[in-house]
Design a protein around this nucleic acid. Structure first.
Lengths: 376, 376
DNA sequence: CTACGTTATTTCCACTATAGAAATAACACA
DNA sequence: TGTGTTATTTCTATAGTGGAAATAACGTAG
């Protein structure tokens, strides 16, 4: 791992070029020229300094045999920089070390010693040491479930009891590297967009299924955010007027129908015992009537949510991510059936992409926003 | 009206500047510089030729008294060009003549003599004569309810029985001016975005209420369109499981609950007589139980649709347009109440903008896409 | 084994768009 | 009438751009 010292921040067209190579993997100069609308000459001029400083490298030429001089695609030197991604939950700090494409290296989980900002900061610092320390780290991203402003300020994070905490400032003081704080769903969406299963797709929505239900949106190749982002509006979408209640009193909303705790709690009522999520899905597959009912209505709800999203957000691709995507794998036909029912038969079928990386997707998202910040 | 002959099409930064002035009305050079990221010197250089050719003019200085040299805002010469907008329905051609900001001049309605492309083209040509002929017309926009490709090709227009008709080509041959064909809802959305009630707003959705229910979306200052645009996906959003059926068999979808024909048909069942839309709204206000039921559930459905749109499309502004917006004016409290119920109490209230121009909004939309095409 | 065709990439160079600085313009107010 | 203040234009050096030609790196045909 070479530590490339970036003398000055990327700017203008050079930044665009680096971003394009970062996202679209090994890519020839001619293809880059087409995408960015630049001439070959300009491409050479712009890529030269980036090659010199080690950010870009000549990729091994592809095996495609054709006439003429072989192409020499450009690629980013993924190991030239390290990033750290941290996902905060109510009880734990989950940290990962990644390369320039948010590929995971070391991971660690640390119990939160408390909810005081100073305690959380200390825990995060400990976690960064666990995943390899700050050596060669370009930036660190931290995500929370809640509203975040200006990439550093936690406006509101109910699960920590925070309101107006300058987490970015505190961490920057403690670590001395650039810190990016972001909402967890926004960050996960960004990771899918640049590095994940939706890489290169310009319009899509993300649904996360886990402790809650999250909703993220990318339109025109840019994430959609507004002042309500972080409130989880897409997570309480009404889906089933006969469903159970969520913690905020919505009957049959997406969280009530789809979140892991809600599903297992529903199952517990009928089964009269505790079940885990995977066990619940297994039971449903095995024909247990209670489990089949809970899982089946969750699947149908997910289908309806997918259709509603495709219709109103005008996307044709939906990414499913989080710990609870097992539902999608096990119940895909039912989901598709419910989705089709709420969609015009002449419309193209919604493309459903499932990110099966589970909980690590959250920390990867945190790293992704740190990476993005250094290319913006 | 001076006919400015545009020697060559606008290009690059000059086009951006003209577009900015067109949309943001009289605007000072300094404000333009801020918005476009250009220096005052560049502003002068770019605006010079546009002033010379008559597209831009120095606006009368505003009355704001302040220190220093008064600003001399730039504005477009709205009368320097004419455009024609045509909205096709199953039975009529509705045509308007507009200026550069899609302000209406002459209007006319002509009965369609038939659904054959040649007949429709002939009727459109007659309509253009009615609204003043082709003198000084820069471009003409035509909209249909259906799917349109490449701004000229009608892929699918069920109300005319068309599939794959090169309406743009036929009209261009007949009229000799640039022709833009577009989906009616997309065009109406574009008109609200550039010239209408949502002028300058970067993220909003449009709901049209009329013979059907239409749905348009603008995100990141750009319309959202995809291959399904024109199918009316937002127009059949499920809202009330106990509602009536729409023509496509959806129970309680937005068209079934909100469209004018569906509402009056529902009322007819209970009232045992025909009622007009306005009369129905009047009856509801007067306390008639049948009308109150139909109108009340329509209002609640609209509220739910507004909330769903705001949550999933992540917009905070919703524009209501079309002939049926009387519902919004009469029943606003009920709409807002239903909308709030499906939205997080901590979220900002959805801003609802009502375009009361009624049916003419459709033809204005057609003109708007013609105008936009000459600035793209 | 060499010359040639083909395509990718780089080098060279003229040109254009840009912004900074200075100049000028247009007011209010003293 | 002069001065302060802000808006706009003019002048000019410069950075960024793309076209054309040169060079590079192959495969292939002779």
């Amino acid at each position: 791992m070479t530590t490339a010292h970036r003398s000055d921040a990327l700017t203008g067209p050079a930044r665009d070029l680096a971003r394009e190579v970062l996202i679209h993997g090994p890519i020839t100069r001619s293809e880059l020229g087409r995408r960015l609308g630049l001439s070959p000459a300009t491409l050479t001029r712009l890529s030269k300094p980036l090659l010199d400083e080690g950010l870009l490298v000549d990729a091994p030429e592809t095996i495609e045999r054709s006439i003429g001089r072989p192409v020499r695609p450009l690629d980013v030197s993924v190991d030239s920089q390290r990033f750290i991604g941290v996902k905060l939950t109510a009880g734990e700090v989950f940290a990962v070390s990644t390369d320039l494409r948010a590929n995971l290296g070391a991971e660690c989980v640390i119990e939160l010693s408390g909810h005081e900002p100073s305690q959380v900061v200390a825990d995060i610092v400990r976690a960064t040491v666990e995943v390899g320390g700050m050596g060669g780290v370009t930036a660190i991203g931290v995500t929370v479930g809640g509203q975040v402003g200006r990439s550093r300020w936690v406006e509101r994070a109910p699960f920590l009891g925070w309101k107006g905490v300058d987490l970015g400032g505190l961490l920057h003081d403690a670590l001395g590297v650039p810190v990016v704080v972001e909402n967890d769903v926004v960050a996960l969406t960004a990771a899918e967009h640049w590095f994940g299963i939706a890489k290169g797709i310009e319009d899509f929505a993300v649904l996360t299924i886990g402790a809650g239900v999250g909703y993220g949106l990318v339109i025109h190749d840019r994430p959609v955010v507004n002042s309500d982002t972080g409130l989880g509006l897409g997570g309480h979408f009404p889906l089933d007027p006969t469903g159970p209640l969520c913690a905020e009193g919505h009957r049959g909303c997406s969280t009530a129908m789809l979140s892991i705790p809600s599903m297992t709690a529903s199952a517990r009522v009928g089964l009269a015992r505790d079940v885990g999520y995977t066990e619940l899905l297994d039971l449903a597959d095995a024909g247990d009537p209670v489990a089949a009912q809970v899982v089946g209505s969750a699947a149908r709800s997910l289908g309806r949510l997918i259709a509603a999203t495709a219709n109103l957000a005008m996307v044709q691709t939906i990414v499913l991510s989080g710990e609870g995507v097992g539902l999608a794998d096990r119940q895909l036909p039912r989901i598709l059936e419910a989705s089709r029912a709420d969609r015009d038969p002449d419309a193209v079928p919604v493309r459903i992409l499932v990110d099966r990386s589970g909980f690590t997707a959250w920390a990867r998202g945190a790293a992704a926003v740190a990476i993005q910040a250094s290319f913006a």
